[in-house]
């Protein structure tokens, strides 16, 4: 790591001031992503602004109307241990349990987890990468087994084909969560809540971040709305090994059944795009229909609609279909399990 200065921020204002004004300063919280990037020289901050000590942003609060507000500095371990999360948002609980390891979850914050950089091995190594300022994405024509199926528009090398690595983001997307972003200089009453899917953007050469945040912007809270009564949730993750790996493909499903009829279905896919990828067409088709093998087949096919395999990641299409099928089985038929 190159030398850098360190400030343990005493207030969010102080941190935001430094971050928005000082070139080379970086927001530092759990450090589980930033330090690995810094060690590899992928990023070289001059100044780390540590907000971990800001206890005001480390909480779990019940929202009026039944949802849950999560302070962005809450660690994944704290969320994992929370009973409300387990009882009311099992998909979120599961997505956290399969994130990293106990040691990582003890340090990693939920805000940092959402804002982490891609795990693309071109990005994190000494390889051509748009995010390094190179002219071409090395993964688009290279070893792209872990890369995107959706959302990258073109595999001509001019678009980043990395995927967002977060598991909780996928579950939160299916739960229709929102994130609250603190903008420097704005009073807290003016902080806006944004649907979580809108937090993410495709990283580009000029803006190599995975989120829409500007320097000094800080995700301060995640709001998970109350889910419909009787809804069922599941989070399934396919990995190269049984633990401690990022998702090849993951699926979060939230279904509300009215008898045998799917009143509502939300399907978010992980590991396939720069953000949690909502299978909106599949969700629409499902809504209001009686669960049948034919409907399941249709949802499964629609979930993969528009997939653009890059070469080495063709396997992700059957994998995602298989996971969606298993997720549907889990949320529509309690007796059968996955």
């Amino acid at each position: 790591m190159k030398p850098f200065a360190y400030t343990a921020a005493t207030s969010l204002d102080q941190a935001q001031e430094i971050l928005s004004e000082e070139w080379g300063s970086r927001l530092y919280a759990g450090g589980t992503d930033l330090l690995t990037l810094t060690k590899r020289g992928t990023v070289s901050p001059d100044h780390l602004v540590d907000i971990k000590g800001l206890a005001d942003f480390r909480y779990l609060r019940h929202l009026t109307g039944g949802g849950l507000a999560i302070g962005a500095l809450t660690t994944l371990a704290e969320l994992e241990a929370n009973r409300t999360v387990h009882r009311r948002f099992p998909a979120l609980a599961r997505s956290i349990a399969v994130t990293g390891t106990p040691q990582l979850r003890n340090r990693a914050t939920v805000g940092g987890n959402l804002c982490q950089q891609p795990r693309c091995w071109y990005y994190r190594g000494d390889f051509p990468c748009l995010l390094h300022g190179d002219e071409v994405c090395g993964a688009a024509k290279g070893e792209n087994a872990y890369h995107a199926l959706f959302g990258y528009e073109s595999a001509d090398g001019n678009r980043c084909v990395a995927v967002h690595p977060s598991d909780p983001a996928v579950a939160l997307s299916a739960l229709e969560a929102e994130v609250v972003v603190a903008v420097p200089g704005e009073a807290p009453v003016n902080w806006e809540a944004t649907p979580i899917d809108d937090l993410f953007q495709q990283p580009t050469k000029d803006f190599p971040g995975t989120t829409i945040l500007n320097p000094g912007d800080v995700v301060v809270e995640i709001r998970v709305p109350e889910q419909p009564k009787g809804s069922r949730q599941v989070y399934l993750k396919a990995m190269d090994r049984a633990a401690w790996a990022f998702a090849l493909v993951s699926v979060a499903a939230v279904a509300t059944l009215d008898g045998n009829r799917l009143a509502d279905l939300r399907l978010a896919l992980g590991g396939v795009a720069y953000k949690p990828w909502r299978a909106r067409h599949a969700e629409e088709i499902a809504r209001g229909h009686v669960v049948s093998p034919e409907l399941v087949d249709e949802i499964v096919e629609l979930a993969a609609e528009g997939a653009m395999p890059l070469g080495a990641n063709e396997y992700k299409v059957p994998l995602l279909k298989g996971l969606v099928r298993q997720a549907l089985r889990a949320v529509t038929d309690e007796s059968r399990g996955i």
């Binding site: 091995w121 071109y122 190594g125 000494d126 390889f127 051509p128 090395g138 024509k141 290279g142 070893e143």
Partner: peptide, 11 residues
């Protein structure tokens, strides 16, 4: 895993 374009090891 080796990148075919640069000949460098990815893993």
């Amino acid at each position: 895993a080796v990148d075919p374009q640069t000949g460098r090891v990815l893993s």
